[in-house]
Design a protein around this nucleic acid. Structure first.
Lengths: 217, 217
DNA sequence: TGTACATCAGTGAACGCGCGTTCACTGATGTAC
DNA sequence: TGTACATCAGTGAACGCGCGTTCACTGATGTAC
């Protein structure tokens, strides 16, 4: 990596860092090429040496966030613990990441950006997270009620890839992930605090309920 | 109501209708006073006779949506049915409303609009919905595990108002509503279809799970 | 039924702003011989 | 080690656009006597 390349990478990172600040302050609509350049002490057009355009920048922010979130969950899943504790750790990792940087969570799961359609990395990252959860469920001693139609569709997700996971476990992962998102997204928007309810308590209640109802031990 | 007042009301409605079209097409950022006026065949400043400004317009769209959604759920709850069937009807009503007009659902529960903070009607409408659910739970024969800390906070929500609902039932409503939002919000954003999963199946699985695990009959 | 006045809807010009993006160009930094 | 050239970063002007909002003003519609 030459000096120029390193410099280039630093500039890109700085631009993205500032973009995230704008995202936090004014939402996705507030991310502006010109404003970023201004804060960096360069002119607007200069940024076009680093990003093809505004959409390109946003796409990178999204891809980064997806990857980081999936990494976080996978890391929590890698720690060697009893299956139930591992699942709790993963759920907490997801939540912690989200509440630490609400704007990024909302970038992924909030109102979709108008012109923009989620490309493959969305699917890839979601897939990674789901598979991580599913593997933890597989390790847990779980009794799975049947759900044929759903399992058939879920199985299709696994079709080509070589993943040591049953359709049932993946379905559980999907349901758990959905609930996780339910609490976390409302928490991130501040709906619970608005009601005077501690989101943490609700979150724990949800995790407890899920594990209590689905594990045999 | 004079002729002028009626006319005035019609103009306001037309403006809001067009605003909702813009919302559907280009998201909250795409709602523009000038563009609305253009489509109505009048000039931009003319709209200032009807709305104090853009924020005022958005606030009204939000208030309308909250009220309409709460009404929908309450109506579903009013239909005389067995408690479990009533809960299903209410959950379906929520979901149907959301998927029929995703942009409005996202206006309420998507990324918060930058400068805007949710006023009282948010709380009021959320409260109505939760109470409706809680009353249906009360009618259902339910065995409630304890959750002291959470129930204490939830009870505070009921404090002043005279509502024939126990803290436990309200807590269940809160959890059910949270899960409901989890599925619906991901569905509305198209995350499931992206994965090749039928949201309807997942939704039914969630409702089934909730009712199965919490009802004694 | 007719007149005098008040109210209201809508216009058009203007202000000040910021945006994304292109383009031709200047310097500086790197590379090859 | 030094020179000739290619690559790259950044500038500044410009294009075309749309926005929210204010203001003084014109007509039309309603109201009171």
């Amino acid at each position: 990596m030459t000096v120029r390349e390193r410099y280039r990478e630093q500039t890109r990172e700085e631009a993205k860092r500032i973009a995230l600040e704008q995202l936090a302050e004014s939402g996705p609509g507030g991310v502006s090429v010109n404003a970023i350049a201004r804060k960096m002490g360069i002119t607007g057009p200069a940024l076009y040496r680093y990003f093809a355009g505004r959409d390109d920048l946003l796409t990178e922010l999204i891809a980064d966030a997806y990857a980081e979130l999936a990494d976080t969950v996978e890391q929590a899943s890698a720690a060697k613990r009893a299956p139930a504790a591992r699942l709790r750790a993963m759920a907490n990792a997801w939540r912690d990441w989200a509440i630490a940087q609400p704007h990024r969570y909302l970038l992924l799961f909030g109102t979709p950006i108008p012109g923009y359609q989620a490309p493959e990395h969305t699917l890839a990252a979601a897939h990674r997270t789901l598979v991580a959860f599913a593997m933890a469920f597989e390790a847990l001693d779980v009794h799975l009620p049947k759900a044929q139609a759903l399992d058939r569709q879920v199985a299709a997700l696994l079709a080509d890839r070589q993943v040591p996971v049953s359709a049932g476990a993946l379905r559980f992962a999907l349901m758990g992930w959905t609930r996780l998102h339910g609490v976390v997204s409302l928490e991130v928007e501040g709906q619970f605090t608005l009601m005077g309810v501690d989101p943490g308590l609700l979150f724990q209640a949800e995790v407890d309920a899920f594990l209590a109802n689905h594990s045999t031990g």
